[in-house]
Design a protein around this nucleic acid. Sequence first.
DNA 1: TATGAATGAGGCTTCATTCAT
DNA 2: AATGAATGAAGCCTCATTCAT
Lengths: 203, 203, 203, 203
Amino acid sequence: MKTKSIPADNARQRMIQAAQELFHLQGIHATSVDQVLRKSGTGKSQFSHYFKTKDGLVHVVLQNIHVWLRGPDAPVNYGVQTWQDLETWLRFFVQAQQRYGCDRACPVGTIGNDLSDKQVLLRQDVRLIFEWVRGQLSRFFAERRALGEIKDTVDPESLADFCIVIVQGGLFVGKINRDGSAFDNTVSHALAYLKSIKQNHVE
Amino acid sequence: MKTKSIPADNARQRMIQAAQELFHLQGIHATSVDQVLRKSGTGKSQFSHYFKTKDGLVHVVLQNIHVWLRGPDAPVNYGVQTWQDLETWLRFFVQAQQRYGCDRACPVGTIGNDLSDKQVLLRQDVRLIFEWVRGQLSRFFAERRALGEIKDTVDPESLADFCIVIVQGGLFVGKINRDGSAFDNTVSHALAYLKSIKQNHVE
Amino acid sequence: MKTKSIPADNARQRMIQAAQELFHLQGIHATSVDQVLRKSGTGKSQFSHYFKTKDGLVHVVLQNIHVWLRGPDAPVNYGVQTWQDLETWLRFFVQAQQRYGCDRACPVGTIGNDLSDKQVLLRQDVRLIFEWVRGQLSRFFAERRALGEIKDTVDPESLADFCIVIVQGGLFVGKINRDGSAFDNTVSHALAYLKSIKQNHVE
Amino acid sequence: MKTKSIPADNARQRMIQAAQELFHLQGIHATSVDQVLRKSGTGKSQFSHYFKTKDGLVHVVLQNIHVWLRGPDAPVNYGVQTWQDLETWLRFFVQAQQRYGCDRACPVGTIGNDLSDKQVLLRQDVRLIFEWVRGQLSRFFAERRALGEIKDTVDPESLADFCIVIVQGGLFVGKINRDGSAFDNTVSHALAYLKSIKQNHVE
DNA sequence: TATGAATGAGGCTTCATTCAT
DNA sequence: AATGAATGAAGCCTCATTCAT
């Protein structure tokens, strides 16, 4: 009984998966509901049954990403603990983008960038994810500062902003140029900067 | 004669202006030709007469921006000559975005981000602008290095990438969050980094 | 057992009730099955189980109204016996409509008006109700005529038609204008007319 | 030149004509835009070019009817001048409906009846027509009263309401029953009533 | 008795573009 | 240099109904 009801929810999952990929690649404006249905092999009304509207689908996709990033299947460890973790985290995005031929940026940023002023709830979804990432990073920097590895004058939260802006900007510029070198260069400078901050610390 | 030819080209200019603003605010996918016509108060065929297709309009808009940025009416001095110029240049974008309530990012980046793999010519237009900015910045850093203000080991072009990524990323994140503080923080760190590079120089 | 079977039929009753109200307010075309389900808090298949199709639901609603009007819970006494009863009956509709802010007309007429030529059975349902009302009124007028209160030349059935048309028309015009004064005025004239017929009678 | 530009506006006229007939017969809810386009042999975008939205089409249709009724091509003389004119006016609707097999009511009333509370502008269009008819009738009754043909105690406007309600109600009931006899009977009584009012006048 | 997934047609509207004048 | 009618595909969404459980 239970096993037979699984294919039902498969349609939903397939739609979410297809939408996530298309949104990542094209943004939400350039992605039509029909495209999602075609790619997921589902019918017109399955869509409205599960998501009601296109915004409803976007909402679920964002939630899905949120859960994904916070869970054990995340593509990279967001729970940064060491300086090495941070470098790994930064370098990951450079590599990930290049694996795709530099044809896409951050899936969350791409969606967020397409939102209008009216899509308040969706913007909230995006903000929540960004806030969580920011929280992880600023926690890390705060911990380092508490250990004396960073000067007291440096604000952990602003360092988190610095990292996020560089990742978003690097992916963005990489996508536009279809070339990852600018991002790569930028990450190198960013790491140099972080090292320069560390060096003031008494080892 | 003169009076008759002025309104003629006015229509073209009005369309370009309207399109530029709408593309900046909404991107090109979310902006319809009709919207542009409505905003510029022009007719359906004025459009096809001057631009033929929507992509044609985008092309002209990009050219228009390019000329604008390189000319005397540029909103900020791209021909950076001094460290102060650079700081002014960086800070300009933070302020410019906040003046608009953080509801838009870089006009060129916004267009570039919306391009598909098929729009090769338009991507070329965008790249040209980015390359020119990059050239201005790397020239500046090269000059400083020639003067001994920067270590020889530092690559001027990668510093230009660093600056561009930070501006694009800052505007991008600012737009998504409808808040400029992350951008502001990031620019402060970027300036601190640049200063740290300078400080190794014997004055 | 008993407790378990009660909620069962509740679903059916809730659907009928919800449909009746929505049909009254919006007509059957503007009312979707989903709307009825939402309002009644029932599921998709409860519906198909009890009514099979939308027309099936309309049929049951009409039957429900028919039973209601003929039963002891009728909102007004259709079994007119005296001239006073008749006036009460006429005035009732004026007041009833105004209580609802003149946003709806006769529930039966509203449904009947939305029927197509293909919905023969439903039209029959509507006719049955109208016929019954007509029968009640013409019986009353026939009785009055038998008592000599009305001239022999006057046809009781046509007087019934006169009353029905005025009620339906009054509600209809009232709904369109969102104002009950035309209906009110019309009923006053109708009563004056009926009185003029009576006055020829020797008391 | 001019002759060649005529077919352009023909599309618009054909759409209006088709819509008017379909709205009359089915109401606006049961009539789809596609149906109008099919019947008028026009394309999807001709529609949006001329009317923008379905409500826009309804608006134009109502205006069209309004102009029609007030103009020289009106199907019946609304500028009632004599008692005979009034009887002709009333009887016209009975006959007109029967010519169509009693399958439709008043075109304006049918549209007005389908409006929701949100369609304020369209309701205004309907009201305007009704007000004009009411004005014509009440003017007539006022003139008769001024000439002493009607008692001073009778309100001309309420008599206009009486006539309108009877026509709307008669058409409505006739459509529902697919039978015009109730309407016919009602008009006879109405005329009898109007005669009873006249008779009090000294000839 | 009840659930809710699945269907596919059709609803209204907007799109970018072309055509005739 | 300019008009605006015409096109048809595609956009998102709702519809009434059926199916599997």
